[in-house]
C-alpha cells in the first residue's frame, strides 16, 4: 500500500482555508454504517467521488448557515479503517468529526477509543459527535447509558440510517459545529498553519478547485 500513501496528499486541501469551505470527516470501524448514513442524509442528491486508490470517498454538499453559503466536503473512509489507522491527510484541516459505532457490536464501541485517540493527535480541538447507529435493530439500546461521549464531553446521538431517525439532525448539527469551529478556532495548529501559509503569499492562487465545487449537490428536499 506504499504507493497509496503518496497519493493521498494529491487531494487538494488548500480550499479548506477558504471561508465558505468546511471539511467534515467520518470515523469508525468497518460496517458501522458510515456510508449508509451519508447516503440517507444526501438521498438522491448524493454523488460520491470515489478516490479508490486513496481508500477515500468524498461527498459534496451545499447548504446555508446563517444566510451564508457553505460548501461541505464529507470525507468517508472507504475501507481505509481496515489499516487500523487513517493517513494523516485524512485529518488534515478537518473542521468537525462524526464518529460512529454500531449498537449491536461491542467491538465497534470499544474501538472508538483508538479512533478518538488518533483524531486528537492530529486535531486536538475540532468538534466531534459520537453516533450510536442501527437503533432500528435494537430499540432497547436507546434506553441504555453509553459513557464514552460523557467521559470526553462530546455530543451524542442515537440514529438509524435505515429508518432515518436523527440522521438529518446529526448532519445539520455537524455542519453548524464545523462552521462555528472555523469562525472561532483558537486551535494552535491552525494558527501555525495560517502563519506558515502567509509566507507563501507570492504564490499564485489556484482557483480551479472552486469550479469543481460549484456543481455540488442541492439540498435534499423533503418529499
Amino acid at each position: 500500500m506504499a504507493g497509496d500513501e503518496q497519493g493521498v496528499t494529491e487531494v487538494d486541501q488548500q480550499k479548506y482555508d477558504a471561508d465558505e469551505n468546511v471539511k467534515i470527516i467520518c470515523l469508525g470501524d468497518s460496517a458501522v454504517g458510515k456510508s449508509k448514513l451519508m447516503e440517507r442524509f444526501l438521498m438522491d442528491g448524493f454523488r460520491p467521488q470515489r478516490l479508490s486508490t486513496f481508500a477515500l470517498t468524498l461527498y459534496k454538499y451545499t447548504t446555508t448557515v446563517d444566510d451564508k453559503t457553505v460548501l461541505v466536503d464529507f470525507w468517508d473512509t472507504a475501507g481505509q479503517e481496515r489499516f487500523q489507522s487513517m493517513h494523516a491527510s485524512y485529518y488534515h484541516k478537518a473542521h468537525a468529526c462524526i464518529m460512529v459505532f454500531d449498537v449491536q457490536r461491542k467491538v465497534t464501541y470499544k474501538n472508538m477509543s483508538t479512533w478518538y485517540h488518533e483524531l486528537r493527535e492530529y486535531r486536538p480541538e475540532i468538534p466531534c459527535i459520537v453516533v450510536a447507529n442501527k437503533i432500528d435493530a435494537d430499540r432497547r439500546a436507546t434506553q441504555k447509558g453509553f459513557n464514552f461521549a460523557k467521559k470526553h464531553t462530546l455530543p451524542f446521538y442515537f440514529v438509524s440510517a435505515a429508518d432515518g431517525t436523527n440522521v438529518v439532525k446529526l448532519f445539520t448539527d455537524a455542519i453548524k459545529l464545523a462552521v462555528s469551529y472555523k469562525q472561532n478556532s483558537r486551535d494552535f495548529l491552525d494558527e501555525v498553519m495560517r502563519e506558515l501559509e502567509n509566507f507563501e503569499l507570492e504564490k499564485p492562487e489556484d482557483t480551479s478547485d472552486k469550479e469543481e465545487i460549484s456543481e455540488g449537490t442541492e439540498s435534499p428536499k423533503t418529499v
Binding site: D136, G145, F146, T222, V223
Partner: peptide
C-alpha cells in the same frame, strides 16, 4: 427496516429525542 423515499409514511427529517439523564441501565460495555 429501511424506510424508502417512495413509502407513504416516509419523512426526510425524523427527529426523536432520547433523553440520557434518566438512564439507569448501562450498556455494559464501559
Amino acid at each position: 427496516n429501511r424506510k424508502k423515499k417512495d413509502d407513504p409514511d416516509f419523512e426526510y427529517n425524523v427527529e426523536v429525542d432520547f433523553p440520557q439523564d434518566g438512564v439507569v441501565e448501562s450498556c455494559g460495555w464501559d
